[in-house]
């Protein structure tokens, strides 16, 4: 019974969000949608425990939203059209386009070094240095740092790639490495 109720509440929250989006654009309905989503977390947690229940509530939001999106397309589309219109015709393709120059490859390689390995080292050191400043147990320090580090690395990589001024990006990443190392090892 509880399982069906939580499924229905999860579905209801997505349907309300969809109705708000599709027809009325009403903030009132969308607020209700998010409210029912919050309620669904509570009900899932009641049935399956707080840990598993929260994961279920989040996952069903995703699945139901995809189902609603798919069902909407069935109403207003002919699937074959897109398949045909996307068909490329007998192309004699070059090995690698002339648009990719050596300079582009070098620039991308430099960007890769900065956004992946260097940003990775910087984020590991930064996350460990940041937690070391707080009065936490060793387990908590390692636990928190390892869970925030991929977020920092991801954010830093994105920023580096979005930044057009490469020297500024290099300076910032190098500074993070130096300051964090000083906090950790000196």
């Amino acid at each position: 019974m509880g399982l069906y109720l939580s499924l229905i509440i999860s579905l209801l929250s997505v349907v309300l969000l969809f109705v708000s989006w599709n027809r009325t654009k009403s903030r009132f309905i969308s607020t209700f949608g998010w409210f029912f989503f919050a309620v669904s977390i509570f009900i899932w947690a009641k049935i399956l425990g707080s840990e598993i229940g929260t994961v279920y509530a989040l996952n069903f939001l995703s699945v139901f939203a995809w189902v609603v999106t798919y069902l909407k397309t069935l109403n207003d589309n002919n699937w074959q059209i897109s398949a045909i219109s996307g068909t490329p015709v007998n192309i004699n393709l070059p090995s690698v386009s002339a648009a990719i120059s050596h300079q582009t490859l070098i620039n991308n390689f430099v960007l890769f070094i900065l956004a992946v390995p260097l940003a990775g080292v910087a984020s590991i050191l930064f996350s460990l240095a940041a937690v070391s400043l707080f009065p936490l147990t060793i387990v908590a320090k390692i636990g928190i740092s390892i869970f925030i580090f991929p977020i920092i690395w991801g954010g830093l990589s994105f920023w580096v790639c979005a930044k057009t001024k490469m020297p500024l990006a290099y300076s910032l990443v190098t500074s993070i490495v130096l300051i964090s190392s000083t906090i950790l090892f000196l």
Binding site: N22, A65, Y70, P150, G155, S157
Partner: peptide, 26 residues
């Protein structure tokens, strides 16, 4: 870890995230 970066970049480069919430133009 880099996948986290892709998630951020996806959100930040998608200004009409709510406007397109259920849109699929087949």
């Amino acid at each position: 870890a880099l996948f986290c970066g892709l998630i951020f970049s996806g959100f930040l480069s998608h200004p009409s995230i709510f406007k397109d919430a259920f849109k699929w133009r087949t």
